[in-house]
Design a protein around this nucleic acid. Sequence first.
DNA 1: GACAGCATAATCGTATACGATCGGTGGATG
DNA 2: CATCCACCGATCGTATACGATTATGCTGTC
Lengths: 217, 217
Amino acid sequence: MDRMLRGALAPGTWMRQDELAASMGVSKIPVREALQRLAALGLLRFEPNRGAVIPALTAAEADENFTLRRAVEPELLRRSIPKLTIVDLAEAELALASDRPATSDADPSGLEANWRFHRAIYVASGWERGLAVVEILHASVAPYVRLYTDSLGGGSDSDVEHQALLDACRSGDVDGAVDLLDAHLDHAATALRAFLDDDVVDGPAARGSEVGEDGWS
Amino acid sequence: MDRMLRGALAPGTWMRQDELAASMGVSKIPVREALQRLAALGLLRFEPNRGAVIPALTAAEADENFTLRRAVEPELLRRSIPKLTIVDLAEAELALASDRPATSDADPSGLEANWRFHRAIYVASGWERGLAVVEILHASVAPYVRLYTDSLGGGSDSDVEHQALLDACRSGDVDGAVDLLDAHLDHAATALRAFLDDDVVDGPAARGSEVGEDGWS
DNA sequence: GACAGCATAATCGTATACGATCGGTGGATG
DNA sequence: CATCCACCGATCGTATACGATTATGCTGTC
């Protein structure tokens, strides 16, 4: 249903309800409800008679996003590591593996690999709400992270950091893992900021994308 | 529209769509969309053919909630204080004042006084997303906070702490304000935990409330 | 008297239909 | 030739209607 929206995103493009409904073979009602759920999470905005649009991310919003993640995710990791099971670690390993082959647009698991990995190492915390919060934050920047990893030749640095983080989780080194996580998020934030500063708000979607200035809703 | 739901909450009671629609003079569609928005935020759950219910809060979830707030809110406050305007401070003062007369169930502003106050001192940060996250966290525990403040004779301690926090904000004492905020959240968490431990999950709604055990969805 | 099974009725989820509002284009005018 | 206005088409938001699923009360039996 709305899983298609979680992955295939196009910041700045207008999505028409009828169009989405037709392409998914259902009526507008479930489409609207899915869009409402996403809108409640801030992942898209409803415009009166223009449709739904995924808001363009400003550099300030990206900074905010990663600062929030750096505040929350260490808490999750700290509580998760002692409870990590072999299954969680395997899932994290799988997520790392599935990230290597450039799965162009269709993720086999339905979840984005990066989030799959982070989720796997947090899920043992048992913190449903915190996991949901982080997922929202992650989803907000995911399209842009994808863009700059694609454009900048693939985030091999990120892969290395993920691997080191996973190793620390395996060995139960909580403080070390938290440090690695913080550094990882810092690097990601820096890279995203550089990307957003470069081609200000142009690159996002190759064709058919008009990125309106954000009116600080 | 959905403002009615944000305030008048009844954890454990079943809400029927037709009933809500009839009481608000609209059809089910807008009601369902409002409920979907709230469900996306985790404020209620949809049950197949039973209706929507506000999930009962477990002690563990309350702990999680306040730990997350203690991780996020100081960040907001730290960035907000230097930018606080006279308007923000006045709004905070108003929120404190409107908390004193026991507004039984109908808040004049439509917002709960407690959240109004916290929001007022955070809003200058300009962090829309962080504010939204904190609002969700706040809304999750709000019904219970209301319950224990009502039952335990009114949160006069909370009022005092709010006032001290506001004073620190006025004088621009960032570190002091953050310390006060952390202590305030700690006290609230302790009080809520004590309340949840006492009458386990009984008190919530006087009549017509069956609180189902949480299946760790 | 207690329990299993069934019929009824209520609720949910979605498809269809319709009015309201707004963007876009063509023409008229300065 | 540029600008303004009016009309039209398109899209959104909501009301109504209907099938599917299931909670609930009754009845028959052990």
